[in-house]
């Protein structure tokens, strides 16, 4: 029991107790110096009218809509590696490399490459195409940021799918091949259905990851801008607590984010327990 104490204490003091405290703060008008008064749902109602919050939620929806891409690309690559594409050992280890670099490192490098007078535009200019201010333009900033996020995390997805593929029965694939099934038929009718638990699992953890681990990239690449083009909920929380000095409001946005991630976590637990029952 005593052995468990440090772990329990750390988790309680820094995570579980703050969760309840945060909910309490979200119901007040607190600032960084003044505890404020109880204002009920005031902060939540204010959020509904706040353009920053609205665009953060709209951006979150855009981010969520990109989840299928984040799941499909690693799945296809993993199946190809599993099927014995030439150079697979090399691919396997290299794909994983961006995933271990800090989002700060990745963001820094891409901010140089993608800046208006950066390398990509210099290349495009050579080809006679005029450059685009990739990160300074509100139409391209979010898609480009998402593309970088996808590029930097797909290796992790490949690993997860490869781990799942090792459980797909070789006999079934071989039997289908002997029956004269074409490659895409084997993929579609044999491999992908067998991967279903992994697809579900990967979808949930990718979604949670997109909602809670893009801060570093956004902080370095765009600072949430231009305007609010790349402000997602987690970034708005940080900005509201610090720069905007509206901690109670930040706490309310935190609760909204918590609601979103808990629904996903609930799904994850359901998937895991259902798979365990099979």
């Amino acid at each position: 029991m005593l052995f468990l104490l440090p772990a329990i204490l750390l988790v309680l003091v820094f995570r579980i107790f703050p969760l309840f405290w945060g909910f309490a703060i979200s119901l007040t008008s607190a600032t960084s110096t003044d505890p404020g008064q109880f204002i009920g749902a005031g902060n939540y109602l204010r959020a509904l009218d706040d353009p920053n919050f609205r665009s953060a939620m709209a951006n979150a929806v855009a981010v969520l809509l990109s989840v299928p891409i984040f799941v499909t690309i690693p799945m296809l690559l993993a199946i190809l590696i599993h099927q014995g594409v030439p150079g697979r050992t090399f691919f396997r280890s290299v794909y994983f490399f961006p995933a271990i670099l800090s989002s700060v490192i990745i963001g820094s490098i891409f901010s140089v490459v993608l800046s208006f007078n950066g390398n990509l535009n210099a290349l495009l200019n050579l080809a006679g195409i005029s450059g685009v201010d990739w990160l300074g333009h509100s139409a391209t900033a979010l898609p480009v940021t998402l593309a970088i996020q996808c590029w930097s995390t797909f290796g992790m997805g490949v690993l997860i799918f490869l781990a799942g593929l090792s459980t797909v029965s070789k006999e079934m694939v071989e039997a289908a091949r002997l029956d004269g099934a074409k490659m895409w038929q084997i993929w579609w009718h044999v491999i992908i259905p067998e991967l279903r638990p992994i697809i579900e699992f990967s979808t949930v953890i990718t979604t949670i990851g997109l909602l809670t681990s893009m801060f570093g990239l956004i902080y370095v690449l765009t600072g949430g801008g231009p305007g609010t083009a790349t402000t997602v909920p987690e970034y708005l929380i940080w900005a509201a607590q610090g720069r905007l000095n509206r901690p109670a409001y930040a706490a309310a946005v935190s609760m909204v984010l918590f609601l979103m991630t808990s629904i996903l976590a609930w799904l994850q637990i359901r998937i895991l327990s259902r798979n365990a029952n099979i």
């Binding site: 969760l19 945060g22 987690e234 706490a251 984010l257 918590f258 808990s262």
Partner: peptide, 19 residues
């Protein structure tokens, strides 16, 4: 302990700073 996986730092940012 496992349930705290559901509480990333963004969710408790303000009370975490106060703590």
């Amino acid at each position: 302990i496992l349930s705290s996986l559901m509480i990333p730092v963004q969710v408790v940012l303000v009370p975490f700073m106060r703590t």
